[in-house]
Design a protein around this nucleic acid. Structure first.
Lengths: 230, 230
DNA sequence: AAATTGCAGGTTGCATGCAAACTGTCGATT
DNA sequence: AATCGACAGTTTGCATGCAACCTGCAATTT
């Protein structure tokens, strides 16, 4: 991030995602400017960008308020994500993998094997897995060679984060979702997806990816409906 | 459109879509400001928004240039659109239509029947069909009740328009695509889609919608590759 | 001759001032 | 008593000034 405006965008976005600015909160330009130690101009630029990302709602001449995000919105985000990553997988399989791509995916799988080689599941393994998981999904978008997918995915992947921020890390949800067991299952999904990609099984890999994302969606849905917090 | 900034956004976007600012063209703030008779501030706001829409590419401290759009990008946009509208159709079918929705879609189909009742195909019928077609696809997004779909579709639907603007309306492409015959075919697709929706056939209606969009994609692809203009 | 550095011109980035629009309150009129 | 209207305060919208940065050219150095 080079310019002040970019930093302001990131900062305000983080505050929204972390829940510091709750749903419906009015973002006052002068207050934000004083708070962040910059003038109103970069603030206004940032609000416009975040409005485009659908994190804020714009009312002409009245400014921006934080969009309210319901469970419904997050589940819908998973639907879109699963569908589009399924598309990515299908076109990759139908086009066929290059040698470099095959090696790249094989290496990503190997790194997963390494993480799960030991039965421990501490902070280190968890953050390593999160990074690897992001890399894997991002690699698929890149390999699909469809330039529309990456910006779309960047937009919608914020919504689960907003929801996560509202949760207590000690809650039942975290206990059920972020377990080693669930991660191992995800890793196995990835293995099957890569195998299907290599074999060029387009329809199958699309279904596998959809189901892979859908599994996480359902995990969230059941945990939230069970807890009844929302 | 209320504020000056919104108007500037629309104006510059139209100019890009119409090809007045060609791929790679540098959009100079002061020049645009003088040209449109406003100050640099709304211009800068507009450029930022259009950058977010992926119509412009941003280089920090050096401004914005018009993104180059290849045939490849337009075909990819169709892939995304077909996939996401397929998703919309599937969830509508799986949830089941309300009485009001069923009547709404039936009315849209009837309006299509009316347009094609006469064998003439003049300006009037063509613009009536374009409006109806937009309404139909928009109604599906609304009925899906997935709030992510509408903004995504709004972004990617610009790309075909950029391509259209580069074409000569007298060209072979327009002769082949914008015929009454092709429109009738689209109308029949819509009828089948609505029938499948009503019957709750989720998987089938998803496939139908994908194929409906894909047919247009292939029409474009063959016409462009045949003409060899790009 | 090639490379590097300093300078000039021009463009974007940010701050600030002023105008326009909106909100809420108080008072007048019916 | 209720509704409508005017006014004050506040907030956003737009214009403009200045600073920072980037590019290209030319002169100097190696």
């Amino acid at each position: 991030m080079k310019t002040v405006t970019e930093q302001v965008i990131s900062e305000i976005r983080e505050r929204i995602l972390d829940g510091k600015y709750g749903p419906g909160a009015h973002l006052h330009e002068a207050t934000l400017a004083a708070d962040l130690g910059v003038s109103r101009t970069p603030i206004r630029d940032a609000l416009r960008v975040l409005g485009n990302e659908d994190l804020l709602v714009y009312y002409p001449n009245r400014g921006y308020i934080v969009r309210s995000v319901e469970l419904h919105d997050v589940l819908d985000a998973y639907d879109v994500r699963g569908t589009l990553e399924g598309l990515a997988c299908r076109v990759i399989a139908e086009r066929g993998l290059t040698e470099a791509q095959r090696e790249g995916f094989a290496e990503l799988i190997e790194r997963g094997d390494t993480i799960f080689a030991s039965p421990s599941w501490g902070q280190e393994e968890q953050s390593a897995w999160r990074a690897l998981n992001s890399e894997f999904h991002y690699a698929l978008l890149t390999a699909s060679n469809n330039r529309h997918l990456e910006p779309i995915m960047r937009q919608i992947r914020f919504f689960p984060r907003i929801f996560d921020s509202r949760l207590d890390p000690q809650s039942e949800f975290f206990q059920n979702v972020h377990t080693r067991e669930q991660r191992v299952r995800s890793h196995h999904d990835h293995m099957h997806i890569v195998e299907a990609l290599i074999r060029g099984e387009g329809a199958r890999v699309e279904a596998l990816m959809r189901e892979h994302v859908y599994a996480n969606r359902e995990l969230l849905r059941r945990a939230m409906e069970g807890s009844g917090t929302f």
